[in-house]
Design a protein around this nucleic acid. Structure first.
Length: 854
DNA sequence: TGATTTCCTG
């Protein structure tokens, strides 16, 4: 018999075909020994030689050859072997041959044939059942696998389940819903305890149980099992380590590794790739390097692609992309996982074009097909990359490859559609998902926030909290990422009540000890105008990083409390826990600027490079221009811009200067700044508005109108003004001239009444803030419709007398609103905290502490 | 006849 499709023995095979042995028995022995040592191609080649030499295969030869066909895997060879099995009459007896056929077909991806073989076995033994259950698991048919297990249990006497059965069934359990899985898993565990096998056999079963508990989130059960288990082998240790890392028990994972080494077990590739994610997530660069060095000393580990993938992940996660790339480049036989790790490493470091380039290299040069993981990394890079235009095409690409049902891919697609503004498509994907995890929920929430659908976002967070408290099938609790996603939204909407609610959740679920969550809480309280709360959270944090400090320094600055901001800055330096970053100096300089601390700020600016090694960038220059400009030193500010590096982006600096020109009514200099800005950022509406305001303030109406016309003809649209106020459980949103709110009529008539009172107190409407060409009387009506006034009026009408009113606005507060709010605050005897894009305005007793308005 | 490892949300 000839098997023409069989491949020749591979040139690098360690087992060359031996000179033909003489007896049939030695042919079979050679065949089996190749199979035992997993030299599959050599096994198949020997089979061909043997049959060519006229030796008929027997019931020992077939299982060996079939194992090889399964191992390669080689479906064509497998089918021909099946034909030979029938021809030689081994198809029904002994059953060992048929059993091997089941496994062969399963490994070759032919489920129907595997099932057919099983169905046609007249006297199925324990191994037949085990092989079939394992096959079902291979095809991820978990329910069917469990069904077969039940059938087996009914035949308890003839085919009792063994440790082999337990291994497959544990795997099936770990892929069920959590509640079902745990229930069945405990049943299995009980079964093992009652009827369990011993020593070697027991080890397999227990390893599988440890893994099962971990996958179902019962990692404490895994630990308990592991600790009492005396027959540990390297897989047991590895299983325990990966169980811990996969459940975010990183410290415990490192400690098990330590115990393992102490117990004299030499870590292998699986150990390293299981423990490296723990180093990565805990930012343990030194430990990671030590493991890298250990792999370096053991050549087989060094070339292991799993270890390499985990190392690439570690280095990229710590921002050391170059080192990750070096590991990647050092591996000659790159498996898909390694490409994925590198692509994702680039993407996570914002090197989106590098990620896309590598993705193309993988497809074109290396000829590898992407899998779901690849797409989950590439999609975000596509979304962010400026160079990559046709983003929605990626959806078609994914569908064409049949990956649209994958959870990771769906998460990435949701994110993509939210970012391009198609939130409805994200919503549809989310609604249609079968298996939503915490990332799916978080992605949907952040999508809503990106698109400005805040109430939908908050509703989803509430839904998550409820499902976490209940015993619903889909148990997904808000995690630290969820909180870090919604807290900034609370801050930008000044939704203090919502923010406090989230704070409460964080405390109840011990998420507030997370540095990032803590920093987000500090920021939220500060943005809601509650500096005291922000400071209290800061003081109680067990651990702080540079972001935490920056956030609070920035907060003091925005509230016009420059002295305290600088005290905090000094404290940060004195404590020395963290080094100041570029952002720290932005915060400190901005604080000096808002409090008029010019010489202090200049000192800081000049010392930042020499004393702290932080190179000033374009944003630092913009802060200093703001500092000088605000203080009236506009010539100095202008001069500073001219000293800036030619290549650096001067737009922010010019914009600061233009802002200062508005405060100090410097028309000519304003024109110069605006000229530069119109060249650098022709689409930015705020530049046109500022210049127009400057002209209007100096009475040059024609020029003011001309700027507006230019803006229109350029097709630049002013972002509509929008203000938010939280009352009760809701954040109410108001746009200019809003009449959509249910209380609209009431708000407008209240404002009219207020208006008369304000005028009696001496308020003069600043109609220069209205840039439409209409009658003077009409201008007043337009002024009264500014969103912050509507929000404030709504607040007064709907909150208890004497309580503080907190309003947030998406643009800078105009001069008239600033002036009017002073009067309103005094008339209704309320403290009003109004936040715009730059800072907080605390209105109390008819004044505001800021000096930005005239 | 069986087990463990890399990837996604900020």
């Amino acid at each position: 018999m000839v098997l023409p499709t069989l491949p020749p023995p591979s040139p690098n095979s360690t087992s060359p075909v031996h000179p033909p042995p003489l007896s049939a028995a030695s042919w079979v022995e050679t065949l089996r020994s190749h199979a035992r040592s997993n030299c599959f191609r050599a096994t198949l080649a020997t089979y061909v030689d043997m049959t060519s030499a006229g030796v008929p295969p027997d019931h020992f030869a077939f299982p060996a050859a079939l194992k090889a066909a399964a191992g390669v895997p080689d479906p064509a060879a497998g089918r021909q072997l099946h034909a030979a099995v029938i021809k030689h009459g081994y198809h029904s007896s002994p059953v060992t041959v048929a059993n091997t056929l089941i496994t062969m077909y399963a490994r070759c991806g032919d489920f129907r044939s595997a099932l057919q073989v099983f169905d046609r076995i007249p006297d199925r033994d324990q191994v037949s059942w085990n092989s079939m259950i394992a096959a079902l698991c291979l095809f991820e048919m978990w329910e069917l696998a469990l069904g077969s297990f039940r059938s087996m249990q009914q035949r308890q006497k003839s085919v009792p389940p063994s440790s082999f059965t337990l291994v497959s069934v544990s795997l099936a359990c770990s892929n069920l819903d959590r509640a079902d899985g745990i229930r069945l898993g405990k049943e299995l565990h009980g079964y093992e305890l009652r009827n369990g096998s011993y020593c070697n056999e027991k080890r397999f079963a227990f390893n599988a149980l440890v893994a099962m508990y971990a996958k179902l989130g019962g990692v404490d059960d895994s630990v308990a099992l592991f600790e009492r288990f005396q027959y540990r082998d390297i897989v047991t240790w590895n299983t325990m380590i990966s169980a811990l890392t996969q459940n975010d028990r990183f410290k415990a994972a490192m400690s098990v590794l330590h115990q393992m080494v102490v117990a004299g077990i030499k870590p292998d590739g699986v150990t390293l790739s299981s423990v490296l994610p723990a180093c990565s997530r805990m930012d343990l660069l030194d430990a990671g390097r030590e493991i890298h060095a250990y792999a370096f000393r053991n050549a087989d580990l060094f070339m292991n692609t799993f270890v390499a993938s985990a190392l690439v992940d570690l280095y990229c996660n710590l921002g050391l992309v170059e080192e990750g790339r070096a590991v990647f480049d050092g591996i000659s036989e790159r498996r898909l996982g390694l490409w994925n790790a590198m692509i994702s490493g680039y993407a996570q470091n914002g090197l989106d074009d590098d990620a896309l380039e590598l993705f193309i290299e993988m497809e074109v040069a290396a000829g590898l097909s992407p899998n779901e993981t690849t797409m989950a990394s590439v999609l975000p890079a596509c979304v962010r990359s400026e160079a990559f235009r046709r983003k929605e095409d990626m959806h078609g690409y994914v569908v064409k490859r049949g990956m649209e049902g994958d959870k990771f891919v769906q998460n990435a697609l949701m994110d993509m559609y939210s970012r391009v503004g198609d939130i409805d498509i994200s919503r549809k994907i989310f609604a249609g998902m079968e298996d939503r995890d915490v990332v799916s929920w978080n992605t949907m929430i952040s999508g809503y926030i990106v698109c400005g659908c805040y109430s939908e976002a908050f509703n989803l967070v509430n839904e998550m909290q409820r499902s976490g408290d209940s015993t619903a099938v889909e148990v997904v609790k808000p995690n630290n990422i969820t909180l870090m996603t919604v807290l900034p939204a609370c801050g930008s909407l000044a939704a203090l009540g919502k923010g406090k609610e989230i704070h409460g959740y964080a405390v109840r679920h011990a998420l507030n000890s997370d540095v990032a969550v803590g920093s987000a809480l500090v920021d939220m309280y500060a943005k809601c105008g509650c500096l005291g709360h922000a400071r209290a959270v800061f003081d109680r944090m067990p651990k702080r990083n540079v972001v935490t400090w920056n956030v609070l320094i920035m907060a003091y600055g925005m509230h016009g409390r420059g002295e305290e901001a600088m005290e905090l800055f000094e404290l940060m330096l004195a404590k020395g826990e963290v080094k100041p970053s570029g952002v720290t100096f932005i915060a400190a300089l901005a604080a000096c600027s808002h409090s008029g601390m010019v010489s202090r700020g200049m000192e800081l600016f000049h010392g930042m490079k020499e004393e702290y090694g932080v190179e000033p960038d374009a944003d630092h220059y913009a802060c200093v221009v703001d500092l000088l400009g605000r203080a009236g030193k506009l010539e100095e500010a202008y001069h500073l811009i001219t000293t800036m590096n030619a290549a650096s982006d001067k737009a922010a600096a010019w914009s600061s200067l233009l802002g200062a020109c508005r405060i100090h009514r410097r028309t000519q200099l304003g024109e110069i700044a605006a000229k530069h800005l119109f060249e650098l950022e022709p689409d930015e509406s705020s530049h046109y508005v500022l210049l127009s305001n400057i002209y209007a303030a100096s009475g040059q109406w024609d020029k003011s109108m001309e700027v507006r016309k230019n803006m229109k003809s350029m097709g630049v649209r002013k972002e509509p003004g929008c203000s938010w106020i939280e009352v009760g459980d809701y954040v109410h949103r108001f746009t200019v001239g809003d009449s959509a709110h249910p209380q609209s009529t009431r708000i407008h008539s209240f404002l009219e009444t207020l208006w008369d009172g304000m005028k009696r107190e001496g308020y003069v409407p600043d109609t220069s803030c209205v840039l439409h060409d209409v009658e003077e009387k009409e201008k007043e009506v337009l002024l009264r419709g500014h969103s912050e006034k509507l929000a404030i009026a709504f607040g007064i009408l709907n909150t208890p007398p004497g309580s503080t009113i907190r309003v947030a606005k998406n643009l800078r507060v105009c001069n008239d609103c600033h002036e009017a709010t002073k009067f309103i605050a005094r008339l209704v005897d309320r403290q009003i905290i109004l936040r715009d894009t730059r800072r907080f305005h605390h209105f109390r007793d008819g004044s505001c502490s800021c000096r930005d308005y005239w």
